[in-house]
Design a protein around this nucleic acid. Structure first.
Lengths: 226, 226
DNA sequence: AAAAGCCTGATTGTATACAATTATCCTTGG
DNA sequence: CCAAGGATAATTGTATACAATCAGGCTTTT
């Protein structure tokens, strides 16, 4: 009750978003402002703002004077996002090869060193965060604000998937090797090689998820609540 | 004052968005809720909701407890969006070649016929709307909700650019020929040819804009208000 | 005179009040 | 018995009230 109960709007947005992605609500379930507000101990105002934002993200549909309905994310949606990300991130890596600053290259190198260290030590917990960081730096290095914005958005949704994907020892170490290859291509300013390296990396990631099954990562959109 | 002054929230959002894209505000200008509310004759509530949505779109930055600041769109941003659209729309056309329904093909054909008619008659006004419609149907035909959402978003921003691009007689008729080629490839379910046709079409569109100058389509982000 | 601290005005963040709309159920007429 | 219409309750849309925060200027102290 000290400082955490201010600036609720942004927090409410994130909570509802996570809940939808996690599959807390069933498809097309109605989200009532008062009910959610009661649950989160806030008034309707922050909830309304959150719902409006979620509509823009495509996670809910708002019917005027009627209410907000959950749209949610299916397995197919996840796969589609991955395909789009594959295209855009390859493109981004190519741009990064041309425009990455020395600071960005250094930051990437630092993440790589840390990753390699934790792999050796078997510290799997740290890997998820480092993997995310590697990709996010790459997005910045592309030098396009727009592209970065789009990629970060897809990346956010696919984080859940990535977490599963890295769980296996074998995948973790091959993943880090692929990162290394990406970084070297970017450093060498070899546009085509950077693109190819990213595409290969993501294709392998997708294949890895395929073996685990996409159903496990998209919050069970089949029927059940929770 | 009958029914139009209800459901203001969505309207306010669209107005502010258009204003920002049109360059009404200067870069980093502060958007005060009360001032905008007074201007649009509404209270702070709808304005706040709009600003929160605009932040998600990347058009404003909100500093907590401080205010909303215009981010705006530069020429470079427009070019970047076009590049992204090029990638995604090519991909989408390829998917459409596989998954388009007969209704969608028919709708595309209808738009084409109308377009060719208006071209012959020299009715340039109608062309912009038809061109937009052609692309939007194509987005649906791709069969990916996610991809469609992304493309419609970029398409919205680039509409202004497109309007300029179609003004010239020569460009209009070559554009419709390119559309025809896209449609035939999709009909023939030739994935690669569809992709190529869309890419060619968009590359030509970009070149056409290049000759007119990107400065004219992105609301003068150089310095001036207005 | 300079710097630190406080006060005040302005603005945002949240909650609540009120208006408008919609859905549901009940009544009523055929 | 069924359909049409209206009253009512619930929910959203908007406006306003109040609380919290911040910037700027003023005073005070060293």
């Amino acid at each position: 009750m000290s400082e955490a109960n201010y600036l609720l709007g942004q927090k409410v947005f994130q909570i509802i978003r996570e809940d939808i992605i996690a599959g807390k609500y069933r498809q097309r379930e109605e989200l009532r402002e008062i009910a959610i507000g009661d649950e989160l101990q806030v008034s309707r105002t922050p909830v309304r703002e959150a719902l409006r934002q979620l509509e823009l993200e495509g996670l809910v549909t708002i019917v005027p004077n009627r209410g907000a309905y959950v749209v949610g994310i299916s397995c197919q949606d996840m796969k589609d996002m991955f395909e789009i990300r594959l295209l855009l991130e390859g493109f981004c890596a190519g741009k990064a090869a041309k425009s990455a600053t020395s600071e960005q290259l250094e930051a990437l190198e630092e993440v790589m060193v840390l990753t390699e260290y934790h792999i050796k030590k078997g510290h799997f917990r740290q890997l998820v965060g480092l993997d995310n960081k590697f990709h996010e730096i790459l997005y910045e290095a592309g030098g396009s604000r727009i592209l970065e914005h789009a990629l970060k958005n897809y990346h956010y949704y696919l984080k859940q998937a990535r977490r599963f994907s890295l769980l296996s020892q074998g995948r973790a170490s091959s993943s880090v090797q692929e990162h290394r290859r990406i970084l070297e291509a970017v450093k060498a300013q070899d546009q085509k090689k950077a693109e190819d390296a990213v595409c290969q990396h993501l294709i392998h990631t997708i294949k890895n998820i395929d073996t685990y099954g996409w159903e496990n990562i998209s919050g069970g959109q089949k029927n059940g609540k929770n």
